[in-house]
Simulated assay, not measured.
Amino acid sequence: MLFGRGKKSKAEPTEDSPTDQADAATSQRDAGVVASGTVKGDFRLSKGPLDASEIDSQDGYVDLGALLIEPVEGLQLRLEVEEATQRVVAVTMDLDGSSLQLQAFAAPRSEGLWDEIREQIGESVSSQGGEVEEISGTFGMELVAKLPTDSADGGQSFRAARFMGVDGPRWFLRGVIGGEAALDRGAAEGLENLFRKVVVIRGDNPMPPRELLQLRLPKDAAATDHHGAHAEAPELQQPERGPEITQIG
């Protein structure tokens, strides 16, 4: 696995009967409740990603601070760095010619952000002359965006991006697939598997909604042996600018 560093400029409530309440309590007890308050076995847990409280150990993951990534053969990682502040604002995973960019944000405890953010992404894409389609995807409602771009022969073409969003306990994780996998669901399978295995570390500090959770280089990145002494450790690459249409807020 290679590692690089990039640069980046309610439904109404109903009243349950005592029997229903007892059944629900039993089911919740049997499933188990994690520290964050999320009931194990809920919809998000069945598809991922996971909260840090929902895994037994952090061993074997690439530790990027707010995100834990499970390494796989052929995976390359790039950190996107905001030029003005030099803070890491995203991680991009390259696999089989396509990419998946990840950003994790603080979120309210009682309500999600994805519905609101999808609308904002659609407005942003439309303002750039692009097209956006809302689809039912692997992780719920998703967006496929197409933005106009200049082709190599001087004509007009487009670049596509598939936006996925998952609301977790006090966090929101957004993934943006680019390349062939943005439109080809078969080609996206590897990146989807990576996305479902991502672990988000929200932390206990109070944070306003939509504030980026802090990412960083792995602690052992600087000590990587480029000649294979530590084959599982990441290798640093040259920076490059991240895609503009993935901005939020």
Rank of each mutant, 00 (worst) to 15 (best):
P239H: 15
L113R: 14
T19I: 14
Q247K: 12
Q237V: 07
R196P: 05
T14A: 09
E15C: 06
E189S: 05
V88H: 15
S98W: 11
G190K: 11
Y61W: 04
G154Y: 13
A223N: 07
D115A: 05
F105Y: 13
D16F: 15
G186C: 02
E180L: 12
N193P: 15
P218I: 00
K7F: 08
R170E: 05
D184Q: 11
K219G: 02
L194E: 14
V198F: 06
A22K: 10
S98F: 08
V144T: 10
A104M: 01
T14E: 11
D94P: 01
D63N: 02
A221I: 03
I201G: 10
L213D: 04
E232C: 00
R118A: 04
V176D: 00
P209W: 14
L2D: 15
T92W: 14
F195S: 03
G175W: 03
G130H: 11
V144A: 03
T149V: 14
D30W: 15
L215T: 13
R216C: 02
G37A: 00
R196Y: 09
A52Y: 13
E54T: 06
V34G: 07
M1N: 11
S17A: 03
E116H: 13
Q128M: 04
H230Y: 10
A231M: 14
D220G: 12
T138I: 04
T149R: 14
G41S: 13
G65R: 05
E133L: 05
M1P: 15
D30A: 09
